[in-house]
């Protein structure tokens, strides 16, 4: 055995190295526990919190009612009932939109699936309720969450991209579809 190793064995070098972090904290003591709800931890920008429906800058809903979020959702949170926009023939939108947040596992697949970026994940997470029914959200509630969480809205362009041609625009010369 070499001398160096003999000294390390003598002073329990490995144990000291293993306890280094612990012992350092012992010297520079600073509490880690946050006094929630008085103190809150800053969330990362890509935090996957409460879901929200978004609007364009002209207050129109972004959602086109394509049901892709419903298809993408692994736990069947979303229910979309699509229809033609009243007064705007051939334009599609979600007439009704429901989310059952009791089932949501915040995987964000609906947000990925959305072709028009109508869904967003907010930084909200304080959604504990006394009644589970309060977690059944409808379109108005989801839009309200979006309104308060995303004050800066995307600009609406009728022809979103020249290579997309028409996308969900209304045609005045077509009669409205019967309900």
């Amino acid at each position: 055995m070499k001398f160096g190793e003999w000294v390390k064995t003598l002073i329990f070098y490995e144990i000291l190295m293993g306890m280094k972090a612990t012992l350092t904290h012992l010297l520079h003591y600073k509490p880690i526990t946050l006094q929630y709800p008085h103190e809150k931890k800053p969330l990362p920008p890509n935090y996957r919190g409460m879901l929200a429906l978004l609007r364009y800058d002209d207050e129109t809903e972004k959602c086109v009612g394509c049901d892709l979020c419903e298809a993408a959702c692994p736990s069947r949170v979303i229910q979309v009932y699509s229809a033609e926009v009243p007064g705007e023939p051939t334009k599609r939108y979600a007439k009704e939109y429901y989310m059952d947040m009791t089932r949501c596992l915040f995987c964000g697949q609906c947000v990925d699936a959305c072709p028009v970026d109508a869904l967003g994940m907010t930084q909200e997470f304080e959604w504990a309720v006394y009644d589970k029914r309060n977690l059944q959200l409808n379109k108005q509630q989801l839009l309200a969450i979006g309104d308060r969480a995303f004050p800066v809205r995307e600009k609406r362009i009728e022809f979103q991209h020249p290579n997309v041609a028409y996308f969900n625009v209304s045609f005045g010369d077509i009669p409205q579809k019967d309900a």
Partner: peptide
């Protein structure tokens, strides 16, 4: 080249 990418709102999608 000419087909619009409107599959999300197309009933055939």
């Amino acid at each position: 080249a000419n087909h619009p990418l409107d599959c999300p709102v197309c009933d055939q999608g």
